[in-house]
Every structure is written in structure tokens, then in C-alpha cells.
Design a protein around this nucleic acid. Sequence first.
DNA 1: ATTTATGTTTACAG
DNA 2: CCTGTAAACATAAA
Length: 293
Amino acid sequence: MPELPEVETIVRDLNKKILNKKIKNVEVRLEKIVKSPVDDFIKIMKNNSFSEIRRRAKLLIFKLSKGDKYLLIHLKMTGQLIYKDKNNIVAGGHGQKNDVNDLPNKYSHVIFHLEDKADLFFNDLRQFGLVKIVDQEGLDTYLSNFGIEPLEKEFSLKAFKELFKNTRCPGGKKTNIKAFLLDQKFVVGIGNIYADETLFESKISPNRRLNTLTDEEIKKLHKVIISILDKAVKARGTTFNNYVDADGNKGGFIKYLKVYQKEGKKCTRCKDVEIKKIKVAGRGTRYCEKCQK
DNA sequence: ATTTATGTTTACAG
DNA sequence: CCTGTAAACATAAA
């Protein structure tokens, strides 16, 4: 799915486009995507509007103007949100073929019909994504499972170090660093791309166990997580294929990628060995054997 | 209870 | 035919 920088970009762009626009109707083309009773979902959305759009981890949170409720959208692996009106096409998410120019398409599972002939499409090839409505309590419950926001002040070095502790074992957590970075209970917003890029920049092997990291390495990792995500947000994320963002621009981070999808290419740092691809934590993982220890 | 590892969802591309 | 995939839950085992 889009990771923190991509979701952040979508949130910023949608805030400019759909805030307080009347939702005239909602079309549910694939019921299982909507995790609330569909009748209720449509009833609540109809004639409502979004008063605020924000992000927590990789979750989009739309506050509804009426009824003290929230619309939650998670894009998971292949979800997209595409806004379209007579002047603009604004898309965010993992690109698929023929998506933006041909709407709705077979992957358009939920469509929000807005005033002024504008539409917001929720597309998802693999159908892992979700759309649901929650009240304040439901939102709080959902959010309580998330860890630290890496671009907020709460992500201090001290708070980061706390995450390495293990209540059962004084030596600390033993899981590998890649699984740790991907786990949203600890630090949120990092997915497969930024996990690999962060570890490369930190010179840490994805297979390293947490309890073997030195203080120096933890400090470096903390700094790199912030700098990479910050750089990616500024670049409007990483994109492939025909992804375009809210103003039709491609994400700019792709040019900064050092290891993701670079397997078989010479490492840009040591200029000596090729980037390898292995499996760690069940996910394809790229790294440089020589640079990352 | 808490940590850690693995399986499942899913449709398409190559 | 086979494999793999921008994610995260559920479940199991330690």
C-alpha cells in the first residue's frame, strides 16, 4: 500500500479538494469492502460532508460534518483514492493499468458522488482495503493499537529506545529489525519500501536481531527514519506505473531509492557488490551485503 | 500475559 | 504452470 508519505500526500491533496463538499450519494459496487452495514453506511454518508481529513499511521480519517462520526479508509496493498471533477484528476495509491483515464473501472468498489459533478473513487485491485464508519469510541479503539508517529515530536530517541525493551526478557526484543520496522504497534507508517531504504541508509542488515543493535546504531536508525520519511513526504511519496497525485504529478521519491527494486544493480555506496534480494519477515527485502552489517 | 513467527486474504502480471 | 506483490490481521507456538 501507500506508506506514510503517500497517505500523507493523499490527505493533503484531498483536503484541498473535497472539504465541506456535499456528498450527494454513495455507490457501493463491492459490498465486502465496506465493513459497516451497507444500508447504514449509505444513509450516513448521503447529504453529509467531510469537515476534516487527517492521517494516523497509514489510515485515512475523514470527520463527518453531521452525526459525530468518522469515515475510515485503509488502502492496504493496492487501494487507491482518485478524485475527479471537470478540471482535475487527483489520484493517490498504487497505480494499476488503465486506472485514471477510465473511471469507474472494474476496480472501483466504492464511489462517492459529490456536488458539482465531482467524484471520489475507491479502487482496489486485490480487495484488501477497507471503508468503514465509526463513532468516537470506535475511532479511539482503532487508533489505540497504533504506535508512535515518526514525524511527530513524540518520536524522541528516548521513546524509540523504549520500544526495544522486552517485559519478559531483560536483554530486549529478539525479533529482526525489518519485522520490527514493519510492525505498526511500534513505529507507524513504515512499509516495505521505506523499511528497506531506512536499513540501507543506516547500514544495518535486515536480519539483525533487535537485542544486538548498539546504542550508536539505534541512534542512527532513529535519525534516518525521520530523515527518509520527511524527505519522502516533501517529494510527495514514491510511485510506480501511472500513479499520479492530487495535481497529476508523479511521486518524486522514486529517484532517491537506493535498494528498493534495485536488486541485481551495483550498490551505490560501496560500488562493489550487487544489491541482493532475500525474504525477511515474509516480505521481499533488498539490501547490500557488504554495506549493511 | 507477551513475544515471535507464520498463514491468510486476493487478483493479476510476468 | 509457477511465482511474487506499497499490508495487516488472526492464530499458533514459545
